[in-house]
Structures are given as C-alpha cells and as structure tokens.
C-alpha cells in the first residue's frame, strides 16, 4: 500500500513541475469557459429551466466542466500515451516483472495526476468563472465533500476506460488512433459539450447510462445538489459499479496480454 502511495505522490509531482504548461492550460480552460458560458446564456435565455437547470446552474455546469476536463482526463493527457508507448516498444515486459500490480501501479500514478490537475487546473478557472458570472455554488460543506467523492469515482472510471483502451495496443498496430476515438466519444458522452439532460429521447437515456457520464454529468449533478439522500447513494453506486466492471475487464484483458508477452517474449 505504501508503494502505491509513493507512486501516486510521484504522479502528482511529475505534473506539478510543469508550471508554464499549467498556467497555459488554465488560460485555455478559462477562454473555453467564457465561450461556452455565453452560448449557454443564449440557450437558457430562450428556454429558462432547460434540462431542469436554471441559468446559474447551467453556468456552474460550464465551469465545472473546465475544472474537471483535465482532472477526469476527458481529452486524454494522462498515463495512456506512455503505456501505449511502453507496449509498442516492449518495455512493458519490464513492468510486468515489477513486484507491483500493473493496473494498480498505473492507477496510483493517475490518481496523483488527477489530484494535481484538480488543484492546479481546476481551482483558478472555477474562481474566475465565479467572479465573472453568477454561479450556483453549494452552501453546505457536505455537498462539497460529496462532490469530491464523486469526482474521485469519476477519475477511477476514466482511468479504467483508458487502461482498457491502452491495452488494445497489444493487438493493434496503431494504439493512438483508437485512443483518440476513445477521447472523442468520451468528450461527447461525458457531457462536456452539452449537459446530458439536454440529449433527447433514447440518445439521452443511453448517454446517461454509459460510463462516461460518471466523468462530468454525475459529479456536476452532485455539486448542483440534484442528488441527495438515497439518490446520492444511487449516483455513487452507478459510478462505483462502472468502476468495478471496467477495472475487472481491464484486469482480464491484462492477464490475456501478459500471457501473450510471456509466450512471445515481448
């Protein structure tokens, strides 16, 4: 357990060293936040209470999206490129002989990264957004705690998806192509472009049931106070359920891949 804590701390520090990149990223998040905020204002001016949000809730959703974009790696930017590269070059064989579990090892590192991105790239855009617009910030500290738990679960789900996709590099020549498709689908179905409550009919039902809704839609709804009491438990169960299923799938795929490496010698 201590090993994984060290790995997580390493993941945090690794991203913390790039100060200029972090500042540049915060700038970009803020610019996109402003652009999206105005489109949402136009939308909610026409249809107040659209998707059950009032305008300030909708704006809050925009800035939560910018704050969580990197944290939940909705457009990638986490460990996956490195893992794919290690699989491609065969260095993965070294990782498999390490006295640590491959999946947990990368998960720990990714949690460290997410923690940094939440602090380094989440807080400033959120504060700037709150200064420029009228946001619906939770009053109760309990809601904040509930939100953080939901974000953590979202990060695990995001990790599990990316781990699964990255492992496909064992079989596919071009792992990065698949990864890019994965980010796109993730970006759309996480609710980053538009809240999933606005997706109509069956598309909406499917989108809300897919794992990616754990990345932004669910944490945002917790933040906005939509999920309380048993509803909150159900939201956690939804995220936790997907996390477990996807982690298990990743583990299964990992053991198949491992056998392949051992048999072929890398």
């Amino acid at each position: 357990m201590r090993l994984y804590a060290v790995v997580a701390a390493g993941g945090f520090r690794r991203y913390a060293t790039y100060r200029v990149a972090t500042a540049a990223g915060v700038f970009t998040n803020t610019v996109f936040g402003f652009i999206l905020a105005y489109t949402y204002i136009a939308l909610w001016d026409e249809r107040p209470q659209l998707g059950g949000y009032d305008q300030s809730q909708a704006l809050t959703y925009v800035w939560l999206g910018q704050a969580l974009l990197m944290t939940c790696a909705m457009m990638g930017g986490g460990f996956e490129d490195e893992l794919i590269e290690r699989i491609r070059t065969g260095d993965i064989a070294i990782d498999l002989y390490r006295p640590a579990d491959l999946q947990l090892w990368w998960l720990a590192g990714d949690l460290g990264r997410a923690a940094f991105h939440l602090l380094g790239r989440g807080i400033v855009p959120m504060v700037l957004g709150a200064l420029a617009f009228d946001l619906a910030l939770p009053v109760s500290p309990l809601t904040w705690v509930a939100f953080l738990v939901s974000v953590a679960l979202g990060v695990v789900v995001s990790f599990a998806v990316r781990f699964l996709v990255a492992l496909s590099a064992f079989w596919l020549m071009d792992g990065t192509g698949v990864m890019q498709m994965c980010w796109l689908v993730g970006l759309f179905f996480s609710g980053m472009l538009l809240p999933l409550n606005l997706f109509p009919g069956l598309l909406g039902d499917v989108a809300r049931a897919l794992p990616w809704s754990s990345l932004l839609q669910v944490p945002a709804d917790v933040f906005l106070g939509t999920h309380t009491g048993w509803d909150l438990v159900r939201a956690y169960a939804f995220q936790g359920g997907w996390a477990l299923v996807l982690l298990a799938a990743g583990r299964a795929l990992q053991s198949v891949a491992t056998r392949r490496v051992v048999v072929q010698g890398g």
């Binding site: 990149a21 540049a24 990223g25 700038f27 970009t28 610019v31 652009i35 999206l36």
Partner: peptide
Amino acid sequence: FAQDAAEVQSSFTYGGNTLLQY
C-alpha cells in the same frame, strides 16, 4: 520563449474556431 505554452495557442485556434461557430 515559453516552450511549454503550446496550449495558449489552442485558446486562439481551437477556441477561436468554437467562438466563431456561434
């Protein structure tokens, strides 16, 4: 001058493109 600042560029390119769609 700022080697890690590639993302600033995206604010104006990708961000600009998004802005102009509306």
